[in-house]
């Protein structure tokens, strides 16, 4: 649905040159929620703004729903943008318009007439749970409500894609969850493809089907989350299940076991103890529900050096678990 190919963008201000994006490629499949995660300054904001060409890349192509946006004339680009809704970190609502007026803005731009516009606005406000606030001004709303208006405005024109530029970063944790649940609901009920950027791993955990890690203007890795967590050495997987820095345990073998899907239920530790007679210590564990499935990572310490544990490790791997020897 969204295809970003070899996009680069450099900013020059005064004497400093910042390479915000360097040869970035990204594929977002239809109907999925794709999260781009990165620190501030990593280029993620530039990336999402390049998708609807608010920021025109220096090179590379952006294709959304079959339209190669980077090749379109200004007028054609405006039309194509109607298929791409966008929500912003600071909401960007018009202070002089009511909630309904804000939602109608996009429809006015498209040229939908009065009565139809009003009906559509109310309908979409009901979807985001704000139908009772239609006549209120943004200054009378809480942050979460403002973002709901932002989402309603983005959805009013029936887009196929929703871009979310740090939509929950200005919100408290509870409001963040309710907004994310709304995004998930829109994704499921309307079949909307969502591309979101965030610096919070929780956002990715909660709603994303796929994710990409961006750093210094480059995509470090990307893929479906269920696949990423069973990929050895995946940084995203490590971020998803933070177990901290590897402990220094001379003489012991420290292993991280990642399990997902079916293997999550198997009695790993008991098995190791019974079959191999090992005294297993648990150093850390993290369990998450990702994409509706239980997945987790456990850090264990086995007495002795790694060479002596080839058999039990091979056994675990046979059962579909990802085993990584820490510090190796």
């Amino acid at each position: 649905m969204i295809s970003v190919q070899h996009v680069s963008k450099t900013f020059r201000s005064g004497g400093t040159v910042t390479a915000a994006l360097q040869d970035v490629s990204l594929e977002v499949a239809e109907g999925e929620i794709f999260g781009v995660i990165g620190q501030s300054g990593a280029g993620k904001s530039t990336l999402i703004r390049a998708v609807n060409l608010l920021e025109r890349p220096d090179s590379g192509t952006v294709t959304v729903d079959g339209d190669e946006l980077t090749a379109l004339s200004p007028a054609a680009l405006r039309t194509a943008r109607r298929k791409i809704g966008m929500v912003f970190q600071h909401f960007n609502l018009l202070a002089g318009r009511t909630v309904r007026g804000n939602v109608e803005l996009g429809l006015e731009i498209i040229g939908v007439d009065g009565e139809q516009r009003r009906r559509r606005a109310l309908e979409i406000l009901e979807l985001v749970g704000l139908d009772d606030k239609a006549g209120a001004y943004p200054s009378e709303l809480s942050g979460g409500q403002k973002q709901r208006v932002g989402i309603a405005r983005a959805l009013a024109g029936n887009p196929k894609v929703l871009l979310s530029d740090e939509a929950t970063s200005a919100l408290d944790p509870e409001t963040t969850r309710s907004i994310l649940d709304l995004v998930k609901k829109i994704n499921t009920e309307l079949g909307l493809t969502v591309l979101l950027i965030t610096h919070e791993m929780d956002v990715v955990k909660r709603v994303c089907d796929s994710a990409a890690l961006i750093e210094g203007g480059r995509i470090i890795e990307q893929g479906r989350i269920v696949e990423l967590i069973s990929t050895a050495g995946s940084r995203l997987a490590h971020e998803l299940f933070p177990l901290g820095d590897p402990p220094s345990r001379p003489g012991d073998t420290v292993i991280d076991i990642t399990f997902s899907g079916g293997s999550a239920d198997s009695p790993v530790i008991a098995q190791l103890a019974r079959t191999y007679g090992l005294d297993v210590s648990i150093l850390g564990a993290a369990i998450e529900t990702i994409g509706g499935n239980q997945a987790g990572r456990t850090r264990l310490a086995l007495p002795g050096n790694p060479a002596g544990h080839a058999a039990p490790i091979a056994d675990l791997r046979r059962q579909g678990m990802l085993v990584e020897i820490v510090g190796e």
Binding site: N52, L54, R78, T79, A80, R81, R82, I84, G85, M86, F88, H90, N92, L93, L94, A95, G96, R97, L105, G106, E108, I109, I110, R153, A154, G157, L163
Partner: peptide, 29 residues
């Protein structure tokens, strides 16, 4: 007027004239 508002209108496919008449002038009234 916050430039974010202009971007929001642009993301909705607004023409320059629409940005002036629907965003800039009303918000700066």
């Amino acid at each position: 007027v916050d430039t974010g508002l202009i971007e929001a209108a642009e993301s909705l496919g607004a023409t320059r004239w629409q940005i002036v008449s629907k965003v800039l002038v009303p918000e700066a009234l």
